[in-house]
């Protein structure tokens, strides 16, 4: 079992209840998309999985244990096995792409190796390979503030691919990437998860991407799980209900409102 939550509640310090009694089990090697309107609690949920937030109450198990019962060293080791792709990649503007990617392994490298890599990058080939998979190998020695938002997001994905985590979490990883490339990036993440048999959980804004690539879809609304189904069993009505707060427009990649009467979404989960 990669992840399990039992009656997990998370209340932000300002009193907002972002996650409201969630029960969930995700097995090793599963690929799950989390969808829902903005403010539904998708990011909070992912941050709970990433052990970045501590549940206010309830039981949380990540990679075979309650992370909040571990001592400092063990928690660090668990965290180094979790890779999180952030929507806005938290990479210093002045950092070079190669450094940003290599930083993915800091959790596993001894300190001297991390520091040595600042003097001369220790694994240029490794960083280049991951960037090539994101189709930005030519940006290897570029500074991150010279990249577009979409390119930077792909650097963030490359960093997590380089990290080789056992649990890949992505929080709207392609919100700034154009549709054709988005498809490629999400496909690449899926291929990585399948090839290495690791768990992939992605929150996605574009519903068509989620339904296309993931065998299991979790709909989240107001901090609760509304449905948890394979894509073939998700009806247009369920999606419309999920996004009822957003003028009943189901968001898709090209940001064209999906006309709901025509069931036009491709549903073809990649076989594993």
């Amino acid at each position: 079992m990669s992840l399990s939550l039992e009656q997990v509640i998370f209340v932000h310090p300002n009193g907002t209840r972002a996650v409201n009694g969630v029960n969930l089990n995700i097995g090793a090697g599963e690929r799950v998309a989390v969808i829902g309107p903005s403010g539904a609690g998708k990011t909070t949920l992912l941050r709970l999985f990433a052990t970045a937030l501590r549940p206010t109450s309830g039981a949380l198990n990540v990679l075979g244990g309650d992370p909040w019962r571990l001592d400092r060293g063990a928690l660090r080791r668990t965290r180094s096995r979790i890779g999180m792709v952030h929507q806005a990649p938290p990479i210093p503007a002045r950092q070079r792409v190669v450094t940003a990617v290599l930083a993915g392994r800091l959790g596993r490298w001894p300190l001297w190796k991390g520091l040595a890599s600042l003097i001369y990058p220790v694994d240029i080939a490794g960083a280049r390979e991951m960037l090539a998979r994101m189709q930005i190998a030519d940006k290897l020695f570029e500074r991150c503030d010279r990249l577009s938002g979409g390119q930077l997001q792909r650097v963030g994905v490359a960093r997590v691919l380089y990290q080789r985590p056992d649990l890949i979490l992505t929080d709207e990883p392609v919100s700034a990437v154009d549709p054709a490339l988005s498809d490629h990036v999400i496909g690449e993440l899926n291929r990585e998860a399948i090839a290495r048999g690791v768990t992939l959980i992605a929150s996605l804004h574009a519903v068509d991407l989620a339904l296309h690539w993931f065998p299991r879809i979790i709909g989240v609304k107001a901090g609760e799980i509304v449905f948890d189904l394979p894509p073939v069993r998700i009806t247009d009505d369920m999606l419309r209900d999920l996004y009822a707060s957003e003028l009943a427009v189901v968001p898709t990649q090209a940001n064209e409102p999906l006309s709901m009467p025509a069931p036009g979404i491709r549903r073809k989960p990649l076989c594993s």
């Binding site: 668990t78 210093p92 450094t99 800091l106 300190l111 991390g114 520091l115």
Partner: peptide, 25 residues
């Protein structure tokens, strides 16, 4: 401080997180 905190959250040590996340900023 987000770059630093993110690195700490992915298991890197304090000094490494400082060198990769805080110093460049």
């Amino acid at each position: 401080t987000r770059p630093t905190v993110t690195l700490l959250e992915s298991g890197s040590g304090r000094l490494a997180a400082f060198a990769y996340g805080m110093l460049p900023v």
